[in-house]
Write a protein that binds this DNA or RNA. Structure first.
Lengths: 348, 348
DNA sequence: TGGGCGCGCTAAAGCGCTTTAGTCGGCGCA
DNA sequence: TGCGCCGACTAAAGCGCTTTAGCGCGCCCA
């Protein structure tokens, strides 16, 4: 119905078995590099495969309880916001690039909340649709790791707190990164520092807040954190709130690139120069941040590469290879650009 | 190997058949709403399904020549650039949102070039991995539509020239949109208009160029188009080239949001005010463009919604429902923001 | 009263592959 | 000479679902 089938059906292993003059079993063995097939026979079989242009039928393979050669990514965020965050797009690109090298597909699903996300995992497990999944935005007391172990679905977390858990994680040291940023600002003489944070339930957001306040205590900074939902609207509002403070901060740190841009716009509207009146730094680096003027100081990390690392990890897990409980990704590095400068009225 | 299986296997239709006291065939019929099952029996079967938490095994279903409940999207662009273009992310979000409502998965693959893309289609067809695909970035004399028809893989094109072809297309009238933009600029008194275009091999890029020049001829505009590969580097270079012209354009139109931002940066570096010295308009609207200062005049379209429309279309095609040769998406609408103004020295 | 028909249901085959349980022939060793 | 073993290969079952063929029963109509 859907489409006209080509006259000659796709070849099956029975066809190549006939062609090579062996049994289908021999073909299967040869294709899966199992012992018990002589080199000569194997070569004959592979030749037949090439001649007939045979390809495995994944469905048939999966039926036998094999791999589905698919990795799943379920994101519990409003679908519309995904298009905005370069982080996601970059991560997905990186994941994709690594997976496709192994002919493993990436299956993408956006859902409303964590409950829906767990439903999807359950469905995918039941349907044998994916061999494993990548889990983002870990929260405090997140139910997902345990649930995944329980349903036996291999998984890799992105983020987390760097502590070993029931599921392997790829971890980047947000704490160290944020500390570096705080030191940079302290070095420029800033004391009153605003922080437009992310969703505080997320482990990585919380770690950034903690890092900033730890560093603040050590370096004598006066930090004010305003949590947001990562949206531009809240970032703008948070910026206004910080500016309305009695003692306006001389520097503001934003947890995401999009938030930082929204903040810069608010500053411009308020007639404040960057970095003349207020220094601005973004925790996430991206094209956007580079295109701003002035370009923003940011913590640079290669999110694409992070995606590749996550992909490698999840492939290892799926294949039953040993994987460290915590795989460490490179710590984001400080990239100083034009948006941070000395405190107004102070010769740095 | 992959994972420890739960002790109790997943229920199969044989289990629910036993539970409901009928044959597996009856279960299958009931599940697929086929006639020949009494309402009472059907209810009993569905109750058993619910009790046991049965889910279809997609592999087994697909084996029988059924749908894979998966739609593919193969993108032939460098993986790293994907993260930058909000258009992709938004489109994917929209696709995803609509598909997941029907429990159809989206399979994503990024490849080097069109040849690799066709290989993927062939593989997916052979492996019965996807029920259909979405094809982007149509080129002049593109081999893909014919190839897809030939291999019998249902597909929907995004873009194209609005003419019926071998494969259904979702079409937005870039020509009309670009015309509106040209009229806006002409209305502000601009005559020398620069245009930083896209990849000229793409049908949609070519249509935009044509539209701009058509409108130019009609409205007495002097248009200079510089094609680019959509990268920021080339966009910046193109902007510099336009500025170096003897008669500097008083307005520049950019084919993409990212290009426009790169251009604005170049203008700022050159000490030119927007829109005081040069008006700037972006063909693609997005968050980025709104966050720029001044926010950029752009042709707004709801890319997320476009994604949903494409998803609906491809689902119809896959299901063998009648689909128009050309499905028309809403024409992008002009959104005037602060980046376009009267020609310098002229009271608009 | 009996033949035909249709409804509700079942048996069994088949989708393409993997895997388990062999079979067969040759070789080494006692 | 005979036994056992091993390497090379095959037969057949099975994965979970769909589908085709067909069965039995009650009903209607001649």
């Amino acid at each position: 119905m859907t489409t006209a089938r080509r006259p000659g059906r796709r070849p099956t292993i029975a066809d190549i078995a006939a062609r090579a003059g062996v049994s289908p079993t021999a073909v299967s063995f040869a294709l899966n590099d199992r012992p018990g097939i002589s080199d000569a026979t194997r070569a004959r079989i592979l030749a037949a495969v090439a001649e007939l242009g045979w390809r495995p039928n994944v469905a048939a393979r999966a039926l036998g309880g094999r791999r589905a050669d698919t990795i799943g990514l379920v994101v519990a965020r409003p679908a519309r916001t995904l298009g905005v965050e370069p982080f996601f797009a970059q991560l997905v690109s990186g994941l994709q690039a690594r997976l496709s090298a192994d002919l493993v597909a990436l299956q993408l699903l956006v859902v409303e909340d964590t409950a829906a996300e767990l439903d999807v995992y359950r469905r995918w497990t039941a349907e044998r649709r994916t061999d494993g999944v990548v889990v983002l935005d870990l929260e405090q007391d997140d139910p997902r790791p345990d649930a995944l172990v329980e349903m036996g679905l291999p998984a890799v977390l992105v983020g987390g707190d760097g502590a070993p858990g029931p599921v392997p994680a790829v971890f980047a040291d947000d704490h160290a990164a944020m500390t570096a940023l705080a030191e940079h600002l302290a070095g420029l003489g800033h004391v009153r520092v605003g922080h437009v944070g992310g969703i505080s339930a997320y482990v990585h957001s919380a770690r950034r807040v903690a890092a900033l306040h730890d560093a603040g205590a050590r370096l004598g900074l006066d930090i004010t954190t305003v949590p947001t939902d990562f949206s531009q609207d809240e970032a703008a509002a948070a910026t206004r709130a910080l500016l309305a403070h009695d003692e306006r901060p001389t520097a503001i740190v934003y947890d995401s690139d999009v938030a930082a841009l929204a903040g810069v716009t608010v500053l411009a509207e308020a007639g404040l120069g960057v970095p003349g009146d207020v220094s601005v730094a973004s925790f996430d680096d991206s094209e956007l941040v580079r295109l701003a003027h002035p370009p923003l100081t940011a913590m640079t990390r290669d999110t694409f590469e992070l995606g590749e690392l996550v992909a490698r990890t999840v492939l290892s897990v799926v294949r039953g290879q040993a994987v460290a409980d915590v795989v460490t990704a490179p710590t984001p590095a400080l990239t100083v650009r034009g948006s941070t400068g000395a405190v107004p009225g102070v010769a740095a």
